[in-house]
Design a binder for these strands. Structure first.
Length: 430
RNA sequence: GGAGAGAUGGGUGAGUGGCUGAAACCAGCAGUUUGCUAAACUGCCGUACCCGCAAGGGUACCGCGGGUUCGAAUCCCGCUCUCUCCGCCA
C-alpha cells in the first residue's frame, strides 16, 4: 500500500507510475485521495481541539471536587455535554473518511521502478537475456504429458492425473516412484543451494488468516484465487511468500538482524478459476504444486542490488540443471499488483516448443512493508519501512516438465542432470 | 470438546477511578571513570496522527470493540488470543 504522505509529496511520480500500469482513472483516484486526506486532517484537528478542551475541563473538575466546590464543578460539567456530542460526531466523520481513504488505497497498485518497460501485456515484456542452447530433439520427441504416462510402478503413469482426479479433482496430480523421488530431489537440491547462499530455512504454516493475506497484498480482492476453509476462516497459501513475509508483520527489526534471508519449501495452492484451457496441459498449470521460495527483508538502499543477487541465484540453479532459460523484465501492464520491479525466469520446454515461467523475482519496496508494519530504526533514527523481496527458487512442476522433455533420448529414456543424481539416486529414467 | 486463569512499553513486571504514557528492574543508547575488558555512576530511552518554518504544542493508544463517568490501564458488556487441568489425538 502506498503511503498518503508519499502520494502528497510525489503526486506526479505517482501519476506517471499508475499510467505505466494502465491503471484506470489515475488522476481522479489521486485527486480523491488527496482531497479526502485534507478533509481527514481538518476533521482531526477540529476533534483534537474539542478533546483537548474536554480533558482540560475534566482536570478542573477534579480540582474543584478536591477543594469542595461542588457548585462550580457542576457548572463545568454542563459545558462538557455539548463538547462530548460535538467530538463524537467529528469522530464518526473521521472514521468515515478514514474508511474511504483505506478503501481507495487498497485498490492502488505499487509504483513501477523507473527501469520497468512500457507495455500492456506479456507480449511487451523485455527480454533481458537468454542462456543456453535449445536442445535439438529427435523425431518423435514428446511433450511431458506423454512422457509421464510411462515409467511409473508396474508400467503405470509416474505422474498420474486420473488418480489425482479421483482423490481430489483436476489439477491435483499424484507423483509416483521415480517422479516422486525426482521431485523430492529437486526440493532438497534447491534448499541446499539456498542454504549455501546464506538463507535460513523456515517451515511455515500453509494456511493463513486474513491479516496475513492483507499483509502481502492478496487480500482484499484476490480471495477468489485462494482456497478457503470457511469453518476456520483460513486460506491455503498460494505461495510461501505469504506466511514467510508475514513472519515479520508488526515487527520492529533490530538493525543488527538485517538483512533477513529466509528460504521455505511449501506446497502452494491456486484455484486458477477461469484460467483453464489451451496451454495448460499436464504440469503447466496445477491447483497444487511445490515451490521453494526465497524471501528477503532489506534496508531500502540495498534492495535493488539484492534483487539482482536473487536473480543471479535463480539463474545459477537453472544453469546447473542445464536448462536453457531467458530472463524477462515485466512491463508495467503485466506486473503484479504489489511489485515495483519483477524478473520472470522462463525455461525452454523443448517437447512443447515454448517458454515456461518457473520463477518470478520481485522487489516490493515498501508496498508490503507498509501493510505489514515492518520497520527498523536505521542509524538510530525514527522507524523506517523496510523493503521486502521474494522469488521462486524454484517452482517444481514446470522444472520437472522441462527436465523430462529436454533430456528425453531417441532410445526413449530420460537422462537426469548430473547435479541431481546424488539427490535422487538414479541417473536415467528408463 | 469441558473447567479455570490471564492479556500493561523491546523483556520481566507494578498499578482498582483524577497526581499514570504509565513505577521498578533488565536490555539498549550517550557520557564519566578505566592500560583493555568488566564493574560503578549520570543522563536518555514507546508508537501513530495533527498543528507549527522552528522551538514547541495537541490527540489517541495498557489484547480488540462497545458502554458507564466531568474523568477509565483501573468499573460494566461482547469478542479474540494465550496459558493450566481434563478428554481426544499424529
Amino acid at each position: 500500500m502506498l503511503q498518503i504522505p508519499f502520494i502528497r509529496e510525489n503526486k506526479d511520480l505517482v501519476l506517471a507510475g499508475l499510467r505505466k500500469r494502465h491503471f484506470a482513472d489515475a488522476e481522479s483516484t489521486v485527486e480523491q485521495l488527496l482531497s479526502l486526506d485534507q478533509q481527514r486532517r481538518d476533521t482531526q484537528k477540529e476533534q483534537d481541539d474539542k478533546l483537548a478542551r474536554q480533558n482540560a475541563i475534566a482536570k478542573e473538575i477534579g480540582q474543584l471536587m478536591k477543594t469542595g466546590q461542588k457548585e462550580a464543578a457542576d457548572a463545568a460539567k454542563a459545558e462538557t455535554a455539548t463538547l462530548k456530542e460535538q467530538s463524537k460526531v467529528l469522530g464518526e466523520q473521521l472514521t468515515g473518511i478514514e474508511q474511504q481513504v483505506q478503501a481507495i488505497l487498497v485498490t492502488v497498485p505499487n509504483i513501477p521502478h523507473s527501469s520497468v518497460p512500457e507495455g500492456r501485456s506479456a507480449d511487451d515484456n523485455e527480454v533481458v537475456l537468454e542462456w543456453g542452447d535449445k536442445p535439438n530433439l529427435h523425431a518423435g520427441a514428446e511433450p511431458h504429458w506423454e512422457l509421464i504416462k510411462r515409467f511409473g510402478p508396474g508400467g503405470s503413469p509416474m505422474i498420474d492425473f486420473d488418480l489425482g482426479n479421483k482423490i481430489s479433482g483436476a489439477g491435483f496430480p499424484v507423483y509416483k516412484g521415480r517422479a516422486a523421488r525426482l521431485q523430492r530431489a529437486l526440493i532438497n537440491f534447491f534448499l541446499d543451494k539456498a542454504l549455501a547462499a546464506g538463507y535460513v530455512e523456515v517451515q511455515p504454516p500453509i494456511v493463513i488468516n486474513e491479516d496475513s493475506g492483507f499483509g502481502t497484498g492478496q487480500l482484499p480482492d484476490k480471495e477468489g484465487q485462494m482456497y478457503y476453509a470457511d469453518a476456520d476462516k483460513l486460506y491455503l497459501i498460494p505461495t510461501a511468500e505469504v506466511p514467510v513475509t508475514n513472519l515479520y508483520r508488526d515487527v520492529m527489526v533490530a538493525e543488527s538482524d538485517l538483512p533477513i534471508k529466509n528460504v521455505a519449501y511449501t506446497p502452494c495452492f491456486r484455484r486458477e478459476a477461469g484460467s483453464w484451457g489451451a496451454h495448460v496441459r499436464g504440469l503447466n498449470r496445477l491447483h497444487q504444486f511445490d515451490k521453494v521460495e526465497i524471501v528477503r527483508i532489506e534496508k531500502p538502499e540495498n534492495s535493488y542490488t539484492v534483487l539482482e543477487e536473487m536473480s543471479q541465484h535463480v539463474q545459477g540453479l537453472l544453469q546447473v540443471l542445464e536448462l536453457p532459460y531467458r530472463v524477462l523484465r515485466l512491463c508495467g501492464g503485466d506486473m503484479g499488483f504489489t511489485s515495483a520491479l519483477t524478473y520472470d525466469m522462463e525455461v525452454w520446454s523443448a517437447g512443447q516448443g515454448r517458454w515456461l515461467e518457473v520463477s518470478s523475482v520481485s522487489n516490493f519496496e515498501t508496498y508490503q512493508a507498509n501493510r505489514l508494519k515492518l520497520r527498523a530504526k536505521l542509524d538510530g533514527s525514527k522507524p523506517t519501512l523496510l523493503h521486502t523481496l521474494n522469488g521462486s527458487a524454484l517452482a517444481l512442476p514446470r522444472i520437472l516438465a522441462a527436465i523430462l522433455e529436454n533430456n528425453q533420448t531417441a532410445e526413449g529414456t530420460i537422462r537426469i542432470p548430473a547435479v541431481l543424481v546424488p539427490y535422487c539416486g538414479f541417473d536415467v529414467i528408463d
